[in-house]
Design a protein around this nucleic acid. Structure first.
Lengths: 142, 142
DNA sequence: CAGAATCCCGAAAGATACTG
DNA sequence: CAGTATCTTTCGGGATTCTG
């Protein structure tokens, strides 16, 4: 068990080693923790939902309004996955009409710093990225 | 310009505000820095490539071997995007046969801490996640 | 060695309509 | 309100083949 700790001096290197270890098993790569989480991260809505739940628990409609252009279908699906992964809790109130409240679990909350760091980086550097793209595209034409 | 700084006491909140600001423009959501970077992150190979380039610059074939099951096509495509975004530099050596070396730019390197944090979290918690999934699936059957 | 060019499939995700 | 059920489209990405 190669466990990585936050205090690890070179986590990135350890990650590479960990990936190398998984490289042996052909089909078991789906079980690799890195790939596993990366798939979730790629889900387009999951991270936004987690972030949206940070300030306080939300109800279904509240989330849909907050995320603007997400369909009910995708919201339901994403929430189900997050619930299955244990990052989000779902509590049904048998009112009339029924209301459902979603909240971050401790596990889900523990992911926010890392996610936040990524989003902060995105915000800090997207201008540089856009500039780089413009320059790159300009050369392509020439 | 709501700029987020690493020292911000509550970056997540600021991100939400930032997203809300973008929510106004209907089609310009693609320009939202958060969405923009999230798309890249979801690319399945981009993060792995960045991590793989951390220790030292690599050549095309080296990368392909290191990432095991990536095809030439996807490796080329991913590297091009990263180059376009200014995260990776590409240098061609006119040897015979030609060799190409890829390296992280300063911008690319600046993204590694955030990525590392995410991957460390993944490794630390994937066991809890897998347990949660098992429990969830067990209930579904019942 | 380091790609470019095609072909093709399955998964992700959007639109729409119906329900308890 | 909080979903579920379909249908359809899009697109990421794998396999294969060809080149300088």
């Amino acid at each position: 068990m190669t466990r990585l700790h936050a205090g690890n001096p070179d986590p990135v290197r350890a990650i590479l080693d960990g990936m190398a270890a998984w490289a042996g098993a052909p089909a078991d790569e789906a079980q690799c923790p890195v790939r596993d989480v990366l798939d979730r991260v790629g889900q387009k809505w999951t991270l936004l939902i987690l972030v949206a739940l940070e300030p306080a628990p939300r109800r279904f409609s509240q989330l849909q309004r907050q995320l603007r252009d997400i369909s009910k279908r995708m919201l339901t699906q994403s929430l189900r996955q997050l619930e299955r992964d244990g990052l989000v809790s779902r509590q049904v109130f048998p009112t009339k009409p029924p209301s459902v409240e979603y909240a971050l679990t401790d596990l889900g909350r523990s992911a926010l710093p890392a996610i936040g760091a990524l989003l902060v980086w995105a915000d800090d550097n997207h201008e540089a990225i856009r500039a780089s793209r413009a320059a790159f595209d300009a050369e392509e034409v020439a």
